[in-house]
């Protein structure tokens, strides 16, 4: 029974709520008063010119940077400033703008690293090779292979991660993020460096994994065709300030957005 003094809206499960985040590097304000609320299952895009502070927002949400001010609420918990690995364990996973794979490890091992947080057996069981650990290791291997199959990388499982083609490396990053079993997936320029055909496949893939794993997706992307075709809601940043928010068609006709991307129209 809900407590009587709680207002009705308190009973709504809060998913992700970002309140007035500020990030200052010395005298530079990289992000100013950034607010965002996500509902479960949404596919939201974050766009803006270079240096707008998009990746900084990601870094604050995932714990890499500690915000100078503001709060991040996740499922009714305040996660502002928690260490990265704890935030990941709470169900937020990310990919990186510049691919950051474990280059010396195989494709399969890359995904298996993400499954490490699900491991129950302690290290001495691993050192002694006890059955409990072996069972867990088999489970991790099988599940990791499942994620590779999902992303179409299963045939490359034993290759070194650094030997993959660029597009495949990006896919592996997504597989690795999925293996942490997130509820919110943050994709930082997933289509960067991809050709139009790969980009189209990627959009399809993002939709598929969202439906299959019940994810909410927040993504940064410069490819406008990709963002407009995929995202249900878009937020535009410029110089750290939110300048627009709305559906793709609203964004496309917003004069502030056009100004930020193309500059002021010249008057004759």
């Amino acid at each position: 029974m809900p407590a009587p003094f709680l207002s009705p809206e308190r009973n709504m499960p809060m998913f992700l709520k970002i309140e007035k985040l500020v990030m200052q590097f010395g005298g530079l304000t990289a992000v100013d008063s950034f607010s965002l609320e996500l509902q479960p299952g949404e596919l939201v895009g974050l766009i803006g010119p270079n240096g707008a502070g998009k990746t900084t927002v990601f870094n604050m949400v995932t714990g890499t940077y500690k915000p100078s001010a503001g709060k991040i609420h996740w499922l009714d918990q305040d996660i502002t400033g928690l260490p990265v690995h704890q935030i990941t364990a709470k169900g937020l996973a990310r990919t990186f703008q510049n691919v950051r794979l474990f280059a010396e490890m195989t494709v399969l091992e890359n995904v298996m690293v993400s499954m490490h947080i699900t491991l129950q057996a302690s290290f001495w069981k691993a050192m002694l090779g006890l059955p409990h650990y072996r069972k867990e290791e088999r489970r991790i291997r099988d599940e990791a292979l499942e994620y590779l199959r999902e992303l179409g990388l299963a045939h490359l499982a034993d290759e070194k991660a650094s030997s993959l083609a660029y597009g495949q490396q990006r896919r592996l990053e997504i597989a690795r993020a999925l293996a942490t079993k997130p509820r919110l997936l943050l994709l930082d320029e997933p289509a960067a460096g991809m050709n139009p055909l790969e980009t189209k496949d990627l959009a399809q893939l993002v939709r598929e994994i969202r439906d299959k794993y019940g994810l909410t997706v927040l993504l940064i992307e410069h490819d406008m065709k990709f963002v407009m075709g995929l995202c249900e809601r878009i937020k535009v940043l410029d110089h750290g300030i939110t300048i627009a928010e709305g559906t793709p068609s609203e964004i496309q006709s917003n004069p502030h957005v056009i100004k930020a991307y193309l500059g002021e129209p010249k008057h004759a």
Binding site: A93, F96, R100, L101, F102, M105, I117, T180
Partner: peptide, 13 residues
């Protein structure tokens, strides 16, 4: 060893 920020983002402490 290979990439500490990525390891952290995958939940490794």
């Amino acid at each position: 060893r290979d990439n500490e920020p990525a390891a952290m983002a995958m939940g490794v402490n």
